[in-house]
Nucleic acid binder design. Structure first.
Length: 554
RNA sequence: GCUCUGUUGGAGAAGCGGCUUAACUCAAUGCCCUCUCAAGGCAUCAUUCAUGGGUUCGAAUCCCAUACAGAGUACCA
């Protein structure tokens, strides 16, 4: 046994397998030509970030479109930042957006033969690879302390050099193995670093599926691959996991682009075939005139939880995100009126190179668009489900009379250009609550804002004449003619053009007459179609409301 | 500081050497329609593609410099 083997055995006494064994354990996936294997690999450090949703939506889409696999992997190697329970939450929220992996970590269980899909459970796999790397001389124990590193950085900064552990600064890379062995036996703390053969004077050509051919600086840093807590760093875990899980397209945030040379070098040294990469732009936000990454601390939109609790239909966020991902998706929508993401052909090549500003207005536009296109049955069910969790008042309202609720939602819905009152489910109740008797009583507590140019007595008499005489049996036209006939008796003008010629001649125009009825029945000046509302309200309720209004005028 | 990567209207962007008087979408504004609102229809909104040079008969498109922005620079991911 040579010294390097001795060192490797000292560090990993329990590891008996080799990389070759692992290759046999995790054979090539049997997929059709062109099938993409993608993944979403979150860290359990909080709720789902909007950027993560964006990334996973794309990864999922690519895998599905190509007949491949989309899987999830938990990257829980940072025990300090880990937040209890966030792993389950992440997967649950992903599911609410209809993103369900084909295999991997599901929050409560794992599926698939390439597991474990939780990094903390893959220790022996990393150790197996590192052990071999040590034997080959491509990795070594490093005894630099945090203080040493600090001092080194300071010196390098002072000398305007590139900071880090590389070249002559990689103090322990060529330490003789015997010394290393004895130090480890003494219990000296250490990490394992990858021994880079690169030179930062060299440029390497890399290809990114979005950004195209790129010239990056070759890596020469001896990065840490195994931390002193025995867990791997991201860089190493990425290389090992994506290799043995046979990811062939890595989709990740742009912030990883800078470390791509490290990954490429590791894949090469290990003799693994590197996957393709797509570094996705990061969603930004304007702050004081400067663009910056959406921040969970500063921006509510950074958390997917915000959209869910606000009551956005999950698919509408997805549609919006897809318009950022591929702006030609908007043209697709205009042409097809089809909001089903499955029908759209996504292309990495069409992605923008830099991060888009999150646009709440545009989200609202698509959100309204999508809710307005839903069948009344669907929006009723979905809003009811949400109300059960977030809105006790709406829940109660719905349960009073479910079919009435559907009818209310259906006002001006079943036509080519439906109303767009709601951007989110939480917009529903405030708009429709006036249907409730008690809510109407509430509204009446403050005076109704009748047009001050019309005398109270005219309003009162007009309402009294209208009371009980609604003409709701036939269509809207008949209803309106009826309103007009009665209004004309009180000197309201039935013809707007005529009214405009000399407003002084009239009590008001027909709009004013309608406003009086609207205020009496709904209590607001702005409502959906009055005829439709009156059709839904019981006749005695309408009677009650008109009488009550007349009473307030006395 | 250093290393990368970007920069087309208020926002998302198309365009990738002549077909561009810069598409399309959101926002904004105005008009029309109209019982209010929403929706819808119509129209307006970049003489110019960060700036300055260059190449070319011709540049948003190619080259160079500058400016600005973003990312990375951890025993975090």
């Amino acid at each position: 046994m040579n010294l390097k083997e001795e060192l490797a055995n000292l560090i990993f006494p329990n590891i008996k397998e080799t990389i070759e064994d692992l290759e046999r354990r995790y054979p090539e996936r049997n997929l059709k030509e062109g099938a993409k294997v993608t993944r979403f690999a979150p860290s359990p450090t909080g709720f789902l970030h909007t950027g993560s949703l964006f990334t996973s939506m794309i990864a999922n889409k690519i895998a599905r479109d190509s007949g491949g696999i989309f899987y999830t992997r938990l990257e829980d190697t940072d025990t300090k930042r880990e937040i209890e329970g966030s792993d389950k939450l992440l997967l649950k929220q992903l599911k609410e957006f209809g993103i369900v992996p084909n295999e991997g970590y599901f929050g409560d269980h794992e599926e698939g033969i390439y597991g474990p899909y939780v990094q903390s459970k893959r220790k022996e796999i990393y150790e197996t690879v590192i052990k071999e790397l040590i034997i080959r001389g491509d990795a070594y124990p490093c005894f630099l302390t945090p203080e040493d590193l600090e001092a080194l950085r300071e010196e390098q900064t002072k000398n305007k050099e590139i900071t880090g552990v590389y070249g002559k600064y990689a103090k322990y890379r060529d330490l003789d193995v015997e010394t290393a062995i004895s130090w480890i036996k003494e219990g000296k703390p250490y990490v394992i670093r990858f021994k880079s053969r690169g030179n930062h004077e060299n440029k390497i050509k890399v290809h990114d599926e979005i950004k195209g051919d790129l010239l990056l600086t070759e890596n020469d840093q001896d990065v840490v691959i195994l931390k002193s807590d025995g867990l791997p760093t991201y860089h190493f875990a990425h290389v090992v996991d994506d290799h043995f899980m046979h990811t062939n397209l890595v989709t990740r945030g742009e912030e990883w682009l800078a470390s791509l040379p490290i990954h490429i070098e590791m894949f090469r040294v290990l003799g693994f075939k590197a996957p393709k990469y797509a570094h996705l732009p990061v969603i930004m936000k304007l702050d004081d005139g400067n663009k910056r990454k959406l921040s969970k601390r500063k921006d509510p939109e950074a958390s997917v939880d915000y959209f869910l609790s606000q009551g956005f239909e999950p698919s509408s966020l997805l549609v919006y995100l897809m318009t950022i991902a591929n702006s030609n998706y908007e043209e697709f929508i205009v042409q097809t009126k089809d909001y089903d993401l499955d029908h759209f052909k996504f292309s990495l090549k069409k992605m923008s190179l830099d991060g888009a500003l999150f646009d709440n207005d545009k989200l609202a536009f698509y959100a309204k668009e999508i809710l307005s296109k839903m069948k009344k049955e669907e929006i009723a069910v979905k809003s009811y489900e949400r109300a059960k969790k977030f809105s006790p008042e709406l829940k109660e309202f719905i349960e009073e009379d479910y079919s009435r609720y559907e009818e209310i939602l259906n006002i001006d819905r079943e036509k080519k250009n439906p109303r767009k009152d709601y951007a989110k489910y939480s917009d529903i109740y405030p708009i429709i609550k006036f249907f409730k008797h008690d809510e109407y009583l509430n509204i009446l507590k403050s005076p109704l804002e009748f047009n001050e140019n019309i005398s109270k007595s005219i309003i009162k008499d007009f309402l009294a004449a209208y009371l009980g005489n609604y003409a709701l049996e036939a269509d809207e036209n008949v209803w309106f003619q009826n309103v007009k006939e009665i209004a004309v008796k009180f000197n309201f003008c039935g013809d707007n053009k005529l009214y405009k010629e000399d407003p002084g001649k009239w009590s008001g125009n027909i709009n004013d007459a309608c406003e009086i009825i609207r205020l009496a029945i709904v209590g607001r000046k702005v409502t959906p179609n009055l005829f439709a509302i009156m059709k839904i309200l019981p006749k005695d309720e309408i009677d009650f409301r008109i009488k009550s209004t007349i009473d307030t005028l006395n």
